[in-house]
């Protein structure tokens, strides 16, 4: 039982550090693609429009 618990703790610690490393990796990866295609691809799926001066929405020109 104790061994099983220790393995779980080690596994949890390992996974958290993998996650921490992933966050670290995310920073350069994001800034390499800043304003790049992948953001546009994601944004295409979001139904958001600019609000015009007249109060009506305008379709974004991509």
């Amino acid at each position: 039982m104790k061994t099983k618990k220790s393995i779980l703790v080690v596994l949890r610690v390992f996974l958290m550090f993998v996650y921490a490393l992933f966050l670290l990796w995310l920073i350069p990866t994001f800034f390499i693609n800043y304003n790049g295609d992948w953001i546009k691809k994601v944004a295409d799926r979001i139904p958001l429009h600019e609000l015009g001066n007249d109060g009506h929405t305008q379709q974004n020109e991509k």
Binding site: N35, K40, A43, L48, H49, E50, L51, T57, N60, K62
Partner: peptide, 14 residues
Amino acid sequence: AVFKQVLIFPTKLF
């Protein structure tokens, strides 16, 4: 953005 699908800040989407 959630309820009316509009961006109220006067900036371009891209």
